Amino acid sequence: MTLADRLRARLADPVDALLTGDLNGAAPMPAGGWRAAAVLIAVTERDEPGVLLTQRTGDLRTHAGQVAFPGGSIDATDGGPVGAALREATEEIGLPVGAATVVATLDRYHTVTGFEVVPVLATVPPDLPLVPAPLEVDAIFEVPLRLLLDPANFAVGSRWHEGTERFYHELIFGERRIWGATAAMILNLARRLTWP
Rank of each mutant, 00 (worst) to 15 (best):
L18P: 14
G157D: 14
E92V: 01
L145N: 06
R146E: 10
I41R: 03
L3Y: 10
L106E: 03
P30L: 01
V131F: 11
L40T: 07
A27F: 06
G174E: 15
A84E: 06
H110E: 10
V118M: 11
L171S: 07
N153Q: 15
D150H: 14
V117K: 00
E45M: 04
A26R: 10
T57F: 00
D16N: 12
L7R: 04
A85N: 07
E116P: 14
R6N: 05
N188F: 02
L3T: 03
P125C: 02
L11Y: 11
P125F: 06
V137I: 15
R46A: 13
L187T: 04
G80K: 06
L19K: 01
V156D: 15
R61W: 08
A104E: 11
G163M: 02
P196D: 11
I178P: 12
E88M: 13
I186C: 07
A76C: 09
A152Y: 10
L23P: 13
D75R: 14
P14G: 05
V137T: 12
V156H: 14
R191V: 00
A42T: 09
F141E: 08
A89Y: 07
G79N: 12
F115I: 00
D59T: 07
E91L: 12
Q55R: 13
I74V: 15
E175I: 06
V39E: 10
E45L: 05
L147V: 14
P70M: 08
A64H: 05
I172C: 15
T77Y: 15
A38T: 03
F69G: 03
V43F: 09
V82H: 10
D59K: 00
A68P: 05
E142R: 09
V112Q: 14
E91K: 09
M29F: 07
G80Q: 12
D5C: 05
A181T: 04
P30S: 08
R191G: 03
A42G: 14
A152L: 11
E45H: 08
A99I: 01
R159W: 12
R191D: 05
G114D: 06
A89D: 08
V118Q: 12
D78Q: 06
D13Q: 10
A4M: 05
A31D: 15
L145G: 03
I172M: 15
A84P: 13
G21S: 13
R108G: 01
L106M: 07
D22T: 02
P125L: 01
T77C: 14
Y109D: 08
H63Y: 09
R46G: 11
L130G: 14
A4I: 00
G94R: 00
A122W: 09
A37E: 09
G21C: 08
A76R: 14
R61K: 05
T101G: 07
A104K: 00
A89R: 02
F69N: 01
P144K: 01
E116V: 00
G71M: 05
E116Q: 11
R46C: 11
P49T: 03
E165I: 04
I41N: 01
W195Y: 04
G83W: 03
P129D: 11
L86R: 04
T111E: 06
I178W: 06
L189C: 04
L171H: 09
A12N: 10
N24Q: 11
G94T: 08
P132H: 07
P81E: 04
L187C: 09
A100H: 13
Q55G: 15
